[in-house]
Design a protein around this nucleic acid. Structure first.
Length: 445
RNA sequence: GUGGCUGUAGCUCAGUUGGUUAGAGCGCCAGAUUGUGGAUCUGGAAGUCGUGGGUUCGAGUCCCAUCAGCCACCCCA
């Protein structure tokens, strides 16, 4: 026998494996997102990972085109892997909205791919959890979007986070007043960096890359000088866009959204009107959202989104306004891990049955089946090894309860219920339906 | 894509101006303890020093390339 040539097992840059101890919390996060979305009436959809290249390219900024994974398929078609869930939604809506009707509320939890350089909390393959409301321009939908973000974060277990709100129309209005509207993209891109590089550097960038005058740059940066609580900011903002129709509407809408979100019970300290956030994506036109973790702002926004006037203009003449946001699941998970919020459990089932007596396999199988029938997850150890070893295994994996039954127990018709956290044991009568056992186990769980 | 830092056992790391058979802690496996885990003790397995070249009598150590991770730019979840 010659030694076979082995291939080094490895994963691509920016792509990762998910062993049980990371996949279990990841699935838990997905379940939470689903539950919250559904509670607001959003319905699930899915779309293909691969789309015709023409569907995907040219939809975001020129950057997204560069990051797009693209290739020719076996039939010579140019195809691309989706880099977000919004463009596929636009295509989906254009194709199906006639049948589905509006408002169309959908959520979409799926993997996306971006061929960009990796960093902490930044991968080439990652999961997004999008939710959008399409076909309405009502402020109610903007408000609901913020409420969903809030519920989502709270349900996931974050107490301290900040949803930053702005409205693109405020910025547009301001830029119109300053005669900078034609250079909006470059100006807003610079402005977006305010928190990171400071007003001085932002002004320099505006002059350098957007061709703004010093005076124009100063004008934009008056946004940054606004301080105080949310009400103060709103008031100042109003003054700044005075006399400009778009800006006034934007400020009014921002105020409306903010008031309604606060009225719906979101604590004021979770909300922050921030006139400097622009969001890079060009298609946002109204309210924009960004969510930062107070304990880890450096990892970036974990849930971002906004309102767009016309999502599917590239695909249909039908106007489809909408609003939505995207939870960056893998980034959030990376943050939670860093903050020690991820409990390392390697078993999804809470109950462990050691294979104690090698002649009692059938009894153990029946016992396990009875508990599963009542909705309790059970793992039966596959080998009749020493009990100590089996319990050690159960301990390592994080099982909560062990059901121990050997010759003594079977002889007296009981089963030992052991709480693995406390070590407490108790004998419970073993019946064919295991009713008392189930009650005893439930008490511990 | 550009620039900087890093890469030794499953994990965290040590490894002297290049010099014999590359070490530790934790973890893992076994035993002490043939029916009870988390503690202790004893023993054990495990590394082509990221990978491929080069310099050298000799490379974990120096040089180059490459792959991967982290950081910055850029952009974003």
């Amino acid at each position: 026998m010659t030694e076979p040539t082995r291939i080094t097992p490895r994963t691509l840059k920016g792509f990762r494996d998910w062993p049980p101890e990371t996949m279990i919390p990841r699935e838990r996060l997905i379940e939470t997102a689903r539950r919250v979305y559904r509670s607001y009436g959003f319905s699930p959809i899915d779309t293909p990972a691969l789309e015709y290249l023409e569907i995907l390219s040219g939809k975001g900024s020129d950057e997204t085109d560069k990051q797009l994974y693209k290739f020719q398929d076996h039939g010579g078609r140019w195809v691309g892997m989706r880099f977000d869930l919004t463009v596929p939604l636009a295509r989906f809506a254009a194709q199906h909205v006639a049948r589905l009707g509006t408002p169309l509320k959908r959520y979409h939890i799926a993997t996306v791919w971006r061929g960009e350089n990796t960093q902490r909390g930044r991968f080439r393959e990652f999961m997004q959890c999008d939710f959008d409301t399409i076909g309405t321009i009502s402020t109610a939908a903007d408000v609901e979007t913020a409420l969903v973000i809030h519920d989502l974060m709270r349900e996931i277990g974050f107490a301290e986070f900040t949803i930053r709100l702005n409205n693109r129309m405020v910025l547009t209005g301001l830029l119109e007043r300053l005669s900078l509207a034609d250079r909006a993209v470059a100006v807003l891109r610079a402005l977006d960096k305010l928190g990171k590089i400071g007003p001085q550097a932002v002004a320099e960038e505006m002059v350098a890359t957007a061709g703004a005058t010093d005076e124009q740059a100063r004008g934009v940066l008056r946004l940054a000088e606004i301080s105080g609580d949310n009400d103060d900011v709103l008031r100042e903002l109003g003054k700044l866009v005075e006399g400009n129709e778009t800006g006034r509407n934007g400020a009014a809408r921002l105020r409306e959204v903010f008031k309604a979100v606060a009225a719906a019970g979101v604590p004021a300290e979770r909300l922050r009107i921030d006139p400097s956030i622009a969001r890079g994506l060009d298609y946002y036109t109204g309210t924009v959202y960004e969510t930062l973790l107070d304990a880890l702002p450096g990892i970036g926004s974990v849930c971002s989104g906004g309102r767009y006037d016309n999502l599917a203009a590239a695909f249909t003449s039908q106007e489809l306004p909408g609003v939505g946001a995207s939870l960056g699941l893998d980034r959030l998970l990376a943050a939670m891990e860093e903050l020690g919020m991820v409990e390392r459990v390697a078993t999804p089932a809470p109950v462990f049955i050691p294979f104690f007596d090698k002649d009692r396999l059938h009894d153990y199988l029946r016992l396990a089946a009875a508990l599963r029938a009542s909705g309790i997850g059970v793992e039966l150890y596959p080998d009749p090894k020493r009990l100590g070893q089996q319990l050690k295994y159960a301990d390592r994996r994080g099982f909560r309860v062990a059901l121990i039954a050997g010759g003594d127990e079977f002889a007296s018709g009981v089963c030992q219920v052991k709480d693995l956290a406390t070590g407490a044991r108790q004998d419970v009568p073993l019946t064919s339906d295991a009713a008392e056992l189930i009650i005893a186990v439930r008490k511990i769980l």
